[in-house]
Simulated scan of single mutants.
Amino acid sequence: MTNSPDPGGAHRGRVARRAVLASAAVAATAFTAEQALATPKHAEHRCGPYVPEPVPAQAPAEEGFLDVPGARLWYWDTGGDGPAVVLVHPGSGSALSWPYQQPVFARAGYRVVAYSRRGHYNSTPPEPGRPGVGADDLHALVEHLGLRRFHLLGAALGGYYATDYALRHPRRLLSLVILSSFMGISDPEYKRVTEQLRPPGFDAMPHDFLELSPHYRAANEGGARRWKEISDLSLGGHAVESQELSEPIDWTRLATLSARTLIITGDADLYLPPPVLRVVAAHLPAADTLVYHRCGHSANWERPADFNRDVLRFWSGARFRDESCR
């Protein structure tokens, strides 16, 4: 990948991206905003049997590039006059990682925006040893698009930068949703506990093995294959240096988080199992929490209808108090 994508490269990237999404897309069942906001009975949808879901046709979106110090970021934006939503992808993904969310959130009336961080699909790689501050890049995009207030959703590593942004710019957020993320927390005991969950060699294992539950991989081989295709395209066959936080996030700093917050994980998440989520929630007593049944590190992909429904309900004012399967 070169430092400045040429027009032909951008065109080839769009073709490759659409080919991957097209391979996954089939006719989707209509999913209206009213259905998305319907309150489930005793959260049965979240704990019920797994049912494979097709990727819906994508909503129209404008694509663009934003120059930031030392890099160029690629983004897409569905536009519209509704409340804005910014999606911050996991370390294994890019702006391509949201095909289940983009059309559903757009149909529910939201302006949906996603971008690729430095070194991820269609964005230039960071300068060696200078990965940049993730929250700074996010803020540059928000300012470029003229978003005054918006909902922020960060997944996994993207949750680090979303949390950092929420702490730095609390008045810009309508809400914060964090999916399966350590949130950049640097408390020594927290880090010790989470690191001991990952034995030597853990990080060298394939992303799809680490981030998709065994239940999903066994029940939906095609879906797992498509997830891997998007991840491989997002990373371009190389490792990407993680971006920096503006400052460490310890428990004291985290306690200043004022945005209305929902924290989500899956009961088969190898990174953030439910007991770790509850450690974080204990330091954020006002935060809502959700745990998905038979689900790994990628609830937005493994259980998208449930995930989308719950996020839309949260954005509309619903509360979730440790609604896990028992």
Rank of each mutant, 00 (worst) to 15 (best):
A218F: 09
D288F: 07
Y271G: 11
A204N: 10
Q101M: 09
R198M: 15
P125C: 01
P40S: 09
S316F: 13
G129L: 09
V142K: 03
Y190G: 02
T265H: 01
I178S: 14
R117L: 13
A135S: 04
R111W: 07
L257R: 01
G317M: 14
R260K: 10
T163C: 03
V193L: 13
Y121S: 04
N122G: 00
V20M: 13
P199Q: 05
L254G: 04
R260T: 13
P214W: 10
A318T: 07
R130Q: 14
D306V: 06
D306S: 07
R192P: 01
P285M: 09
E244N: 05
E195D: 15
L153G: 00
L173M: 08
R118V: 10
I230P: 01
C325F: 10
R14N: 09
H283Y: 10
R319Y: 02
S234P: 06
H215P: 04
F105D: 02
P188M: 08
L96D: 15
T32S: 13
E143A: 10
L212D: 15
V68I: 12
V133E: 03
R12L: 11
D137E: 05
Q101G: 00
Y190E: 02
M183N: 09
F31Y: 14
R303A: 05
N220A: 09
G64M: 06
H11A: 15
L147D: 02
W76H: 12
S97W: 12
K41A: 15
R321S: 15
P274V: 15
V193N: 06
D208E: 15
T261F: 04
S23I: 14
V280A: 13
D203W: 15
N308S: 13
G93E: 03
H297D: 14
W251P: 00
R260M: 12
I264H: 03
A106K: 05
P90F: 02
L179H: 08
A305N: 07
R117V: 13
T32P: 09
L145S: 04
A33L: 10
L262P: 05
S123G: 12
P199C: 07
H169T: 14
Y190T: 03
Q35K: 04
E323A: 13
T78L: 08
L138G: 00
A95F: 09
R18Y: 15
G109K: 04
P83A: 01
I264P: 04
C47A: 04
P128C: 00
A33Y: 11
H42I: 05
G223V: 12
H207W: 05
R278Q: 12
T29H: 05
V85D: 00
R321Q: 14
A16N: 14
V240R: 00
K191Y: 09
T256F: 07
S123L: 09
